[in-house]
Nucleic acid binder design. Sequence first.
DNA 1: GAGTGGGCGTAAAGATTGTGTAAACGAAAA
DNA 2: TTTTCGTTTACACAATCTTTACGCCCACTC
Lengths: 230, 230
Amino acid sequence: MSLAAARILLIEDDAVIRGFVRESLQTEGGEVFEADTGARGLIEAATRQPALLILDLGLPDRDGLDVIRDIRSWSQLPIIVLSARTQETAKVAALDAGADDYLIKPFGVPELLARVRAQLRRAAVPAGAAEAVFRFGSNEVDLAQRRVLHAGEEVHLTQLEYRLLATLIREQGRVVTHRQLMQEVWGPGYAERTHYLRIYMKQLREKLEDNPAQPAFLLTETGVGYRLQA
Amino acid sequence: MSLAAARILLIEDDAVIRGFVRESLQTEGGEVFEADTGARGLIEAATRQPALLILDLGLPDRDGLDVIRDIRSWSQLPIIVLSARTQETAKVAALDAGADDYLIKPFGVPELLARVRAQLRRAAVPAGAAEAVFRFGSNEVDLAQRRVLHAGEEVHLTQLEYRLLATLIREQGRVVTHRQLMQEVWGPGYAERTHYLRIYMKQLREKLEDNPAQPAFLLTETGVGYRLQA
DNA sequence: GAGTGGGCGTAAAGATTGTGTAAACGAAAA
DNA sequence: TTTTCGTTTACACAATCTTTACGCCCACTC
């Protein structure tokens, strides 16, 4: 998942190459769009708004350099060029037309992926504040920062407490069985030790419920498991 | 004048290569600084503040990947790697360590210049983002200049201290796991030596916290990692 | 309707691991 | 040589996890 669901446009007329490049990118977690001509590629680039473009220079309908220049007239997106042409002048021309990298066929998939990562890394928006905050009652759980607030005050949770809470949040509203909780928080081999759950649920309630004796969010489902009511 | 007087740092131990690369860059209008060892190079990078770095991986004194990681801990400047190693794994390692491009020796000067132009072009866009000073408590950390002030006084941090701090700053607020810190500061292969973290965290606290015994910013998340609270 | 047992909550004492601190060593740099 | 820095070793203390013990509630049974 190192490509983190990045949208990638692949313009390549050779169906075989297109196929394995697409697969490689998808395996790494990318979302791939394809085009087999320059004209089609330009339309896709405009409509899909990809985060990166992989462009074959040897297209049937248009000169690859032309495609680069066209895109550069309205977009800064990173462009990695694929080409069978090894001449230095071809590389220079593509790079000066606006490409960011140039890879000669045949190329290795690991290298392509590494260059894709390098381009995406550079292009990544610095801010990105994902804002993944989960709220219930007077609590806020920031999963990205691993921080928990209760009534505005920061609450310290131990590793197991936090993992337990995070698991319940992930299944918010649904009942999570004893077995599943033990598996996710303590790992395999602890399935029988369900008493731990009672101990740690008490601690969570103590820290997060307004009235720990009568929990409003961290609920018991007798004989089954626990549930987080949001 | 296509390089537009850009400041370029060249780290290369081979005097012959260094010579003709320098000349080529200067002919195109670049301002070139040189270093023939990794250690010297890091100092030059910090003091000259180049717009681009060309780095030979086969340095006599330090592992080239380590140099990349070090620079990446405090700077986003484009890095073009030169190397005699053609193996794909070497390319992937360098790119994933933070390099932006990888050129195999022997390379053509026109191609190098084109790749330099491509990197400079891309880096030129977000120019306004300067002024990267991070503040917490009575501390100011200038990531661009690699300078740290505590209560107005300049504080000297060692290489590892600085990298650790820079990593925490980059993830400001978030918990950074032991594993991730070890990976980013010491590199792969040190994952188990988490005791180093305790030693260096203590030293950072000693230098930056008002009350090192009760840290207010450099916080421990027991069993998980550390966090910089801004 | 008193007894019984499972499931649950509560409490507190070990046991274990993680963390902070100090100090010493050797290699490299000044 | 002296200084600086990264590494290694040692140990005390704190935080956390695990274990053990006990009481309550409720459904069910006799």
